[in-house]
């Protein structure tokens, strides 16, 4: 098997190497790839969209439909994980469960918790395999998380002028929640962002994107034509496009944050979304 694999790989590689004979060399300014489409984008996109970051302009506006589908892919991934590994809520979860008495710090162990006690003030649930409550880690993360979230928002909002945008900002925002789960435990995260909220948020983000597109249709233009935003608040055509990109990026950010949190929660808790990591 390994030898066949090696042979196949070497053959494919050789064929690929042979087929790169007529490619332009590295950094060639006159190659077709940097002349036809990209020249137009570099020279025209600022006056058409008022967005200095060309990547954002092309991503959010010229290829906006691609970006919408890309958001849909993230949304799909979250749904797919939910469909494949989420365990039904009423199923008896086998294994060990630990409860700590809040006053004395005494820990009680329970097998096969079919009926989990609800919000009980005297006992709190402790993760069985990951009890990190370390004072250094917890307090540092508590201090750092707001800054990470602020930075995530900045990356979403400043995508017009610097590297950034909805996807990157959304990932940073989701990372702050992952850090919350790592430093505290998964239940803290679920308490802050429960499943319902994350699912609704992910759908709302795509719907915001979709809504911007439908607004274009409602104004008599094509789907996703941000030119429809012209005249809103007295804006010019180009700043309408700029606003459209911003709205779209916010939608993307919401979906990406929610979807990544969903995937993290499901994967780390093996589908129970109660404890894990």
């Amino acid at each position: 098997m390994k030898k066949t694999a090696l042979l196949a790989v070497i053959l494919t590689g050789a064929l690929l190497i042979l087929s790169m004979e007529n490619f332009p060399s590295w950094g060639d300014v006159q190659s077709p790839a940097s002349l036809h489409l990209s020249r137009h984008f570099i020279e025209k996109s600022y006056e058409q969209t008022l967005t200095p970051n060309l990547v954002t302009a092309v991503l959010g506006d010229y290829r906006g439909f691609d970006t919408m589908l890309e958001t849909v892919v993230v949304f799909t991934a979250a749904l797919a994980c939910f469909l494949v590994i989420r365990l039904p809520r009423d199923v008896c979860t086998p294994g060990l469960f630990y409860y700590r008495h809040t006053r004395t710090g005494l820990v009680v162990r329970k097998h096969d918790a079919c009926e989990l006690p609800g919000e009980n003030p005297t006992f709190e649930r402790v993760d069985s395999d990951w009890p990190p409550h370390d004072v250094v880690v917890v307090s540092t993360c508590r201090m750092v998380i707001p800054f990470i979230q602020l930075f995530g928002l900045y990356v979403v909002a400043h995508g017009h002028y610097s590297p950034g945008g909805g996807f990157q900002g959304g990932v940073i925002f989701a990372a702050s929640y992952v850090l919350l789960a790592v430093s505290h435990d998964l239940r803290t995260l679920v308490h802050r962002l429960n499943e319902r909220v994350t699912h609704l948020l992910s759908a709302a983000g795509v719907l915001l994107f979709f809504g911007v597109g439908l607004f274009g249709m409602a104004m008599g233009l094509n789907f996703l034509d941000y030119g429809a935003l012209e005249g809103v608040l007295g804006m010019s055509l180009a700043s309408g496009h700029s606003l459209g990109i911003l709205l779209v990026e916010i939608g993307v950010g919401m979906t990406v944050t929610a979807a990544l949190v969903i995937i993290f929660k499901l994967l780390s808790s093996r589908g129970t979304v109660t404890e894990g990591l």
Partner: peptide, 13 residues
């Protein structure tokens, strides 16, 4: 033919 985003063919989708 439908221009998504209103951009004409080679530039848009």
């Amino acid at each position: 033919t439908y221009l998504l985003g209103g951009w004409s063919p080679p530039w848009g989708i």
